[in-house]
């Protein structure tokens, strides 16, 4: 099923090549210009003393992958569902709903990674990032964990909500949380005491904390990784159940 969904994404890319490429180019440039450039004049160094534009690089990648993931999932599970297109036909094929949800997540993550690779090239052409290969591989692993969790959250929202206005409002709220509530751009310690501890418990914030812990101490937090994987797995099953209920199947 993954290859079928992947082929469809490639066809959709080909069919809208110019606008797709334009947006892919624009996204990292805008993100760099709107986040990294002004924030480094406000927060010059992280609490550990790392220059902000270097410290924020992994966070920017997390933000970009979130921005890429959303329209893919929105289209598949909200737009095509409320317009009664494709989705129902997909669920009539000999694949379980859990397989479909997991496969569409994998395909969306692969597409997000294309954008991440491209963004890394753009970002590093402006600012040299001192990151070694093993560190980069662990960052990719944490990004996969994060995308699995965020993708599942997007899918839940797209399936539960049936009207465009509610969907837009929910998306705006979610993007505020994604941008500022996960420690990607602003460290948790900048938030009021107590509130930061609460935010650290957010499932979406866990993968970035795993990466930061590894980056600063070299320790791999196996417990948090296991919790994230288990949560993503349970969420896929939950979403397949929601899909079943929504389609009355």
């Amino acid at each position: 099923m993954i290859s079928a969904l992947l082929n469809r994404r490639i066809w959709l890319w080909k069919n809208r090549l110019v606008p797709s490429l334009f947006l892919l180019l624009l996204l990292p440039i805008i993100t760099f210009a709107m986040i990294s450039l002004p924030f480094k004049n406000i927060i010059r160094f992280s609490l550990a003393g790392i220059p902000y534009d270097i410290w924020v690089f992994p966070g920017i990648l997390f933000v970009i992958s979130s921005l890429i993931l959303f329209p893919l999932i929105y289209r598949e599970y909200f737009e095509l569902r409320i317009h009664r297109k494709v989705l129902i036909n997909l669920t009539l094929t000999p694949h379980s709903k859990a397989t479909f949800i997991f496969s569409s997540l994998i395909v969306s993550i692969l597409e997000a990674f294309v954008a991440i690779i491209f963004s890394t090239l753009v970002y590093t052409s402006f600012i040299p990032i001192p990151i070694n290969l093993f560190n980069m591989l662990f960052l990719v692993f944490c990004l996969v964990l994060y995308n699995l969790l965020l993708g599942n959250l997007f899918i839940s929202l797209s399936l539960v909500i049936d009207t465009l206005t509610t969907m837009l409002l929910a998306t705006f709220i979610l993007f505020l949380i994604v941008l500022f509530g996960n420690g990607f751009l602003i460290e948790f310690s900048f938030f009021p005491l107590g509130f930061d501890s609460l935010m650290k418990l957010s499932p979406l914030a866990i993968p970035f904390q795993i990466y930061q812990k590894f980056n600063s101490t070299g320790i791999i937090d196996h417990i948090s990784i296991s919790i994230s994987i288990a949560l993503a797995y349970i969420w896929v099953l939950l979403n397949s159940y929601i899909l079943k209920i929504k389609l009355r199947q």
Binding site: A4, N7, R8, W11, V86
Partner: peptide, 28 residues
């Protein structure tokens, strides 16, 4: 064993007709 044609058009609007058909073939 089943093929279903719904009353409403449920093709992917941004795929060509051939791509819509091939997508189903790939799924099966």
């Amino acid at each position: 064993l089943l093929g279903y044609v719904s009353f409403e058009n449920d093709l992917d609007p941004w795929l060509t007709l051939e791509q819509n058909i091939r997508f189903n073939a790939n799924l099966y």
